[in-house]
């Protein structure tokens, strides 16, 4: 080891011992501690509490009664709740696929624009819906897509198209909610993809061009593999969000018609807060958490073969 190299650890050690470092340490710990406190209070403790509560029968008013795994046994034989898992999974998959496809398509199109200000305008336009309150958007969309009085059907009527039961038929309601959720969330995926596409090395793209690759071939053989880690991240985040879909179906259809748009979170809310079965509602929440963990785990397993890290 050279003398210079030996001096470096010594300098680090000296700096560590510097009085100002000691003064900064409590501040650093306070900052980290604050974050930890928030995570503990708003995430960790509620999860632990829900797990504990799922072994009880509790109607908020009376004392909790320990029921062991009864809530879980009930869940796996409760047809409507099991159906809500199916509904959620179906809607979540549709949302994720549409969100990624549309986000990527928009990002590629916008990235082709040479003028920076055009790209900025598009980025802002696509990102804006994400900033709007989901509850407000859902109320607004409920009016827009109303079967009889909605603006959408009004304009379709001008074109001679009969009224579409956007929110009053099972398939229509599910599809409308998926489209609205995608419209609101696609901005997030889009921004991720735009940033990722911009980081694709230009020499690689030029090499592909010299080798005679067309735009589509370049996209699917060069760009997509290179941004696959971002696609994985976007897919994981989108799926976790979609599995917790609540606001749009609750506000626009109350989970209906029938139970066509009753997602797991709506089931959980109904059992817990409306039917006063907080233990059972917690059990549903825990099973949903487990389902999300399993699906995310599967995504990462699949990513080992599909994701390309430079």
């Amino acid at each position: 080891m050279s003398a210079a190299a030996a001096e470096v650890p010594a300098a680090i050690a000296k700096r560590r011992r510097h009085p100002s470092s000691h003064r900064e340490a409590p501040f650093g710990f306070a900052m980290i501690g604050l974050s930890c406190l928030f995570v503990a209070v708003f995430t960790a403790i509620p999860i632990v509490a829900s797990l504990g509560l799922s072994f009880f029968s509790w109607d908020v008013i009376s004392s909790p009664q320990f029921v062991g795994v009864e809530n879980y046994q009930r869940l796996f034989t409760d047809g409507p709740v099991l159906k809500s898992f199916g509904v959620t999974l179906g809607m979540a998959l549709a949302i994720v696929v549409l969100q990624l496809t549309l986000g990527l398509a928009l990002a590629v199109l916008v990235n082709q624009r040479k003028l920076v200000w055009i790209r900025t305008i598009f980025r802002t336009a696509f990102y804006l819906p994400l900033l709007a309150s989901t509850a407000a958007v859902s109320i607004f969309m409920g009016y827009l897509f109303d079967y009889k009085f909605g603006v959408v059907n009004y304009y379709l009527g001008l074109l001679g198209i009969p009224n579409v039961p956007w929110l009053t038929s099972g398939l229509g309601a599910a599809a409308t909610i998926v489209l609205i959720a995608v419209w609101q969330q696609v901005g997030f995926t889009f921004v991720l993809f735009v940033a990722s596409l911009m980081s694709v090395p230009t020499d690689v793209l030029e090499a592909a061009q010299i080798d005679g690759a067309g735009p589509l071939r370049t996209l699917f053989r060069i760009k997509v593999p290179l941004i696959s880690p971002t696609i994985l991240f976007a897919a994981v985040v989108a799926l976790i969000n979609a599995m917790q879909l609540f606001d749009q179906p609750y506000i626009m259809t109350k989970g209906g018609p029938g139970s066509a748009t009753t997602t797991v979170t709506i089931s959980m809310y109904q059992k817990g807060f409306q039917n006063l079965q907080f233990g059972y509602g917690s059990a549903i929440a825990i099973v949903l958490l487990a389902a999300i963990l399993i699906i995310t785990g599967l995504q990462f397993l699949a990513a080992r073969k599909l994701v390309f890290y430079q």
Binding site: A49, G52, S63, P64
Partner: peptide, 16 residues
């Protein structure tokens, strides 16, 4: 089982 359940049970107690 954790602080959370205790907190919730305590809330229940408040109700009664």
């Amino acid at each position: 089982g954790g602080l959370g359940l205790a907190a919730l049970a305590d809330l229940a107690a408040c109700g009664n």
